[in-house]
Nucleic acid binder design. Structure first.
Lengths: 340, 340
DNA sequence: GAAATCAGTGTAAGCGCTTGCATTTGAATC
DNA sequence: GATTCAAATGCAAGCGCTTACACTGATTTC
């Protein structure tokens, strides 16, 4: 007998509507298989009892969750927010729910989060970047959980992905910087260890130096964690060199904004005394003065396409492709044209 | 018989270790109840099979999830990020997992998310603000799910909360602004409908005008959704009045930054031509030039204390108190002292 | 008019885990 | 050596849901 004042179950609804639990279940999951009059009766019982299906039970019985997990390195800033928003909107439109976790840029935490999302029955996973312990991929494969990487385009890995070529994008920006007459280039990069996006951006800049007859090894590079303060500190130390750079290229916009502040704190004006570039094109890049020259990443498009691709994989319409999105240069005031 | 290459279950582990499923379960959940030699045997079987407990099944059997749900109005900006980060860290330390959802400032979506988190078995819920359909609270109460509000201090409601007094905080800032000699005050507020934080801030400003013999009704107020662009637009329209304000007080820092941009776009300098204030003290407030005068909200402390309070409620150590946190004024360059 | 078909519904077997209670084990006590 | 008792473990009943299969009665087909 159903207890009074207890959480209603399928059984309670079935009893209230005078049908079997199977019928109630069908009303909820494939309404077209139930004749209208019955359905209405059931639905009003659902309403009246304030019934909400128990997710755990449903997962167990159906062995599907319609849940997609995403693990992003950080929620602390806007970098992933826009893409994630689009990702989630597209998932929602396809009847999926998004579960988000963040790894604080730490592989061990990421692995823990992956296990947790898998245990929670995620039908598919979105991860940022490719680089991680192969065991992680084995684990996911053994459970046949589709994984899609975002933020990278590295077709050689063969991993399904929706992203852009970090290395080539940074190369393009660097080429522009060099075309503007800059020869003394320094870089502030995010931590490259375990972060193939950051690493790719460093490589892209080196490529450009090489291609233009400059010595990649001679370029000062400071690696520092995410954060405005860190960018400011790094800039200060770079500008104290005997022959300071004419441009400081940053691995991301947050560091670039920090570098900008750092320069202004030193009494340097940007771009007269030093040029600064970023990467990502988050809103912040246009809010500061001067606005920051950066690489525009199609965040929303990436989020949307990732959702489509991942759902296709989950529903076995595809085994996962490697999709390349194009980044574009955003030349703004923080970069000075030395020829001009 | 356990199928080859299938996801291992408790049964598989039990068989591999030569014990019953009960013992394996206890090894995982209350290891002290199992003698060491057995435990080791079980654990190595777990390891060897790559076993991960099925969350759905566990939830169903134990009727506890060790999961806390949080629904925040938006993930798009940093407002809630810092508090949420602290919230999640504290939860983690106490053995709980955080599930985050965002409502896009829409009550219907929030309700949907609440149901979804409840269906997923959240042991407790963190919500932002108090104001919502009473049915929501009834629903939660009928399922005896503890709810804690953050970002508000409204003891009269009796709802458990950890937050600050939005109205009084804004009053304090406004008093300072008035003390600085400003008489023509305008406001750019977030949408107040369904948002008691935004509404409280407007009231606080009106209180201050009243208390200083100014007419609260005469103050121009523009309500606009979150977003830098919106702030800029609002400022432009406020400054086009016959007698433009000497200070524009904004309901949050994002609008304030927008207002700042808007002013700069119009060729006005801040704070010489017009002062601007914000609320929240997110990182952005210190990144822009001039830095924005704002109300500092103890985000991390709020997150941490909310976690502690909510877990106490979930574990029935408390029935929920109303905790007030103190906000503080951050006077920075965007506010001009007209007496000075 | 009988057979075949079909839509709508019910029956009941799990899904993988936890836990109250029963049972076994082994040490401590007499 | 028998008795007692606590600690360690096993047994088995669910937790709330989905779904394969069975059943019913109406409709169609020949």
């Amino acid at each position: 007998m159903s207890q009074l004042r207890s959480v209603p179950t399928l059984d309670d609804v079935a009893r209230a509507a005078g049908v079997s639990t199977a019928t109630v279940s069908r009303c909820l999951n494939s309404p077209e298989r139930v004749v209208e009059v019955t359905r209405k009766r059931v639905m009003s019982a659902v309403e009246q009892l304030g019934y909400t299906p128990n997710f755990g039970a449903r997962v167990m019985a159906a062995r599907r969750t319609f849940t997609i997990g995403a693990i992003i390195p950080t929620m602390e800033n806007a970098i992933f927010a826009r893409a994630l928003q689009a990702f989630q909107e597209e998932l929602h439109a396809r009847g999926y729910t998004l579960l988000v976790a963040s790894s604080a840029y730490q592989p061990e935490i990421e692995e823990e989060q992956i296990r947790s999302l898998v245990a929670r029955g995620a039908d598919g996973l979105l991860l940022i970047g490719h680089e991680r312990d192969p065991e992680v991929y084995d684990y996911l494969k053994s459970r046949s959980i589709p994984v899609l990487s975002a933020w990278v385009y590295l077709p050689d890995t063969g991993q399904p992905a929706v992203g852009f070529d970090n290395r080539r994008s940074m190369f393009a920006l660097a080429q522009q910087v060099i075309d503007f007459g800059h020869l003394r280039i320094a870089m502030i990069s995010g931590i490259t260890k375990g972060n193939d996006r950051a690493a790719g951006r460093v490589l892209g800049l080196r490529d450009a130096l090489q291609a233009n007859g400059l010595d990649p090894e001679a370029m000062p590079v400071i690696e520092t964690p995410y954060g405005v303060e860190n960018g400011a500190d790094a800039l200060r130390s770079l500008m104290q060199a005997d022959v300071p750079p004419t441009v400081v290229m940053c691995g991301n916009d947050v560091l670039a904004v920090g570098a900008l502040r750092g320069a202004q704190d030193m009494g340097l004006s940007v771009p007269q005394d030093v040029s600064i570039t970023g990467f990502d094109d988050i809103e912040l890049a246009r809010i500061v003065t001067p606005q920051i020259t950066t690489v525009h990443v199609p965040h929303r498009e990436m989020g949307r396409k990732a959702a489509i691709a991942l759902v296709d994989m989950v529903e076995k319409r595809s085994t996962g492709e490697v999709v390349e999105l194009k980044s574009t240069l955003q030349i703004r005031d923080s970069l000075r044209d030395l020829n001009g």
